[in-house]
Design a protein around this nucleic acid. Structure first.
Lengths: 126, 126
DNA sequence: CCGGATCCTTGCCGATACTG
DNA sequence: CAGTATCGGCAAGGATCCGG
């Protein structure tokens, strides 16, 4: 399931350039809101309003837009509870959880290099 | 160096929400052009014009813009050869190479789930 | 060959208002 | 509470020119 398969000759970048569908998907997901939503859905199903609070800075509109996109791509599962008031919950699908692993790796990387990056910025800004 | 450290209580998403610098850096990098450039710089130093061809669809402007940002954050190293015509080469720094690992993971994920995603889209669009 | 600067267009995204 | 629709500002990003 986890792709540690060995490919010969071509690397990942080539795969992205060759396949337009792959590029489209990659472009969909490589945006901060989508990745942040995935990161926040770590471990727990969340309601729309919870997501709205937890991913801070995101607007109502961007949240729905990204959730639709992610649902369409099969990353999140949407459950509507027919109650009053309505209750909608979002959870990661297996595919989404697989992607979560790499998102967490990116988060870890960010925090591991925080200071180095800050230093690099100061050097550059001179 | 590689952060497989164990943290207690808080998860990655929390770290991103708590630290505004982390969020800023994450937002810088979580965009398709930056990630694609990193993916392409896999294994080899590349000239500006080579990058321009390899990351296809990117404009001259976006390429310089992202390269500056990545240089500022210490992800790529820029070497200017004082020849005529000028020759400028870009290479990943150790930090950049560390990030490359997670970018490749994302690429692998994309290709591993291509068909599933395509199927999911068809289902959704009905 | 590189990349900065300028103009100009496009579409992203936030604010607001309205339905179920 | 969750979601859709509309509108409008503003910034992202493309095209082009020039200068090193």
């Amino acid at each position: 399931m986890v792709s540690t398969q060995v490919r010969d000759e071509i690397d990942d970048a080539d795969l992205l350039r060759a396949d337009s569908l792959a590029r489209e998907i990659f472009s969909d997901l490589a945006n901060k809101w989508a990745l942040l939503i995935i990161a926040v859905l770590d471990e727990r199903t969340l309601r729309f309003s919870e997501l709205h609070t937890m991913v801070d800075g995101i607007s109502h509109k961007m949240l729905t837009q990204n959730l639709r996109m992610m649902e369409r791509n099969g990353l999140v599962h949407r459950t509507v509870h027919p109650t009053v008031p309505p209750r909608v919950e979002y959870a990661l699908t297996p595919a989404g959880r697989a992607l979560l692993v790499t998102v967490e790796a990116m988060c870890d990387w960010t925090h591991a290099h925080l200071h180095a990056i800050e230093a690099s910025r100061h050097r550059f800004d001179a």
